[in-house]
Design a protein around this nucleic acid. Structure first.
Length: 278
DNA sequence: ACAGGATCCTGGGGGC
DNA sequence: TGCCCCCAGGATCCTG
């Protein structure tokens, strides 16, 4: 579900309510989540105090004063929210933490594709994620790295953008939007791109994600921020979810086809499959 | 090295 | 109202 802008929004919403707070009780543990590590969560989380909350790719990094880190990934339908003392608990809450100010922090995940990971003191979370293959943040990517990675690959652009080892944080929505913005067809091979095209794509990814962060992300179905507020960027999407509707640039109906096993939305006129002659 | 499919899950929407 | 089928923002694993 959530891509970089949605995860960033959750982090910004949660951070002021978590930093300095202490977990006094763990009232639900994530046994039902296959991608949550097996830990005595009750024992390792109780007493921890948040020192920082930040994002890396689609991961939420919670740094505790003890030096331990607690990582959360929202998968497709994950929600990570702070609740007031009296708020009732929805279905599919897999982790519930009671804080020292009476608030509750709940991790809810309908489809259970999310992940939870605990790193003991001494393990740097960013280094850990990078050792697992996580690629660079999409902001301020070195143009040389980008060109080298994209242009030497025969894979199609949609697959490259979705690959978290190439660049971290892009998912289906913003891959489609970035490709439209740069006039590139999702099925084009990375090695077919000119240097100009590849840099246009790099800038488009950065621009689209920045705008989406400003709009608090896109709420298509389940996504809400850390305070429960929905996103707004879904209203500014130009191709995603707009199959059959006119292209905002040229009025050609937007098409949808599978690339890299994901439904991809694009304008067949503005995003030609072969490189324009001019 | 890469494409494609299956897989982990639940729920919403459309068609009948 | 109900049932069945398809679809979904992620990521991994397997096969060819």
């Amino acid at each position: 579900m959530p891509e970089l802008p949605e995860v960033e929004t959750v982090v910004r919403d949660l951070k002021p309510g978590l930093v300095g707070r202490t977990i006094i009780r763990v009232t639900k543990t994530p046994e039902a989540m296959k991608r949550a590590e097996k830990h005595p969560w009750d024992r390792i989380l109780t007493g921890q105090t948040w020192r920082d909350v930040r994002r890396r790719g689609k991961w939420i990094i919670q740094e505790f004063a003890s030096g331990a880190n607690f990582l959360a990934h929202l998968g497709m339908t994950g929600q990570y929210q702070l609740h007031e003392a009296n708020e009732t608990c929805a279905d599919h809450v897999h982790l519930e933490l009671s804080l020292d100010n009476g608030a509750w922090l709940r991790f809810r995940d309908i489809r259970r594709f999310g992940a939870l990971c605990y790193l003991p003191p001494g393990t740097n979370p960013e280094t850990h994620l990078e050792s697992e293959g996580l690629g660079p943040e999409p902001f301020g990517v070195d143009p040389g790295y980008w060109s080298e990675t994209i242009r030497k690959s025969t894979r199609n652009l949609k697959a490259l953008l979705l690959d978290q080892t190439v660049v971290a944080g892009v998912g289906n929505i913003y891959a489609d939007e970035s490709l439209f913005s740069s006039g590139l067809h999702p099925g084009r091979s990375g090695c077919q791109l000119s240097e100009n095209e590849v840099q246009k794509l790099r800038k488009a990814v950065e621009t689209i994600l920045t705008k989406a962060v400003s709009g608090r992300g896109s709420t298509i179905r389940d996504y809400v921020g850390g305070s429960g507020l929905a996103g707004s960027f879904q209203n500014r999407l130009k191709v995603y979810g707009r199959e059959g509707l006119p292209c905002p640039r040229c009025k050609t109906p937007i098409e949808r086809a599978d690339w890299a096993g994901r439904s991809s939305h694009y304008c067949p006129t503005c995003q030609p499959i072969s490189r324009p002659a001019f």
